[in-house]
Amino acid sequence: MDFAAFLVTQCLNALSQAALLFFLGVGLTLIFGIMRIVNFAHGAFFMLGAYVGYSSVAIAGNFWAALVLSPLLVGGFGIAFELGVLRLLYRRDHSAFLMVTFGLTLIMGEAIRLIWGVNALEVRAPPALSGIVFILDEPFPLYRLFLAAAGIVVAVAIWQFLERTRLGLLIRATSQNAEMVHALGTDVRLVRSAVFGIGCGLAGIGGVLAAPLVTASLAMAPTAVIDTFVIVIIGGMGSFLGSALGALLVAFVQVFGTYYFPDLALALMYLVMVMVLVIRPGGLLGKEA
């Protein structure tokens, strides 16, 4: 394999990985920006997305149906949790949220084990995407290309949504000064519910998309939540662009790290995070130190 082909395929690999990480990171960072809470259960929502995706494929027999159904259901569950539990806690310290969502992680992990069982469940990519393409004479899975493209499309869509729609405007305003938005006659609580739902739904999309690669398993949640935290912290809590940057950085470190330093691969990501925080305590694009 010549070096150019190697470099291109590895970069595409990293891009597809970054897309998955971005789905997680952007949800977490949006939620943090609006609600000032850290959603520890984000990985569990991601995992739920994969399992719901599995069932949707099994029932509807169609991966695309799963891609629509899963984020809706996961987002709906997120909104229900926000209304039922989180809303009681807004006057409390942010540690309360960390702990409640930690409890939710335990509950969701166990509930998923009860409903779907302990075995990893395979989700097949749709036939149109399960082939292989040749890039500079190197075989490359088509599905990963699709992931990278999906990541870019969703990133642009979210960016445009935040910049150009009314809800996007409200979300940006709320993250800057919620009191003022409230005083101007918008029910900030509804914005919060919506954002929590959107964030969880994005994690759900990530779950469905990740399922054909890694199978739906109970180990998804812990790995996902840690990776997501790393991304969001590197990028800066609450920064949309930061989460995209963080996802890219972490994905490239993971992919190339695994290749060049297989023994250090696990530690490398944390080292990068520590380094970024030492230089910029608020993250690359974070506001506060």
Binding site: V100, F102, G103, L104, T105, L106, I107, E110, L114
Partner: peptide, 8 residues
């Protein structure tokens, strides 16, 4: 499951 509930 129950532990999570108790904790919340």
């Amino acid at each position: 499951l129950f532990f999570g509930l108790i904790f919340i």
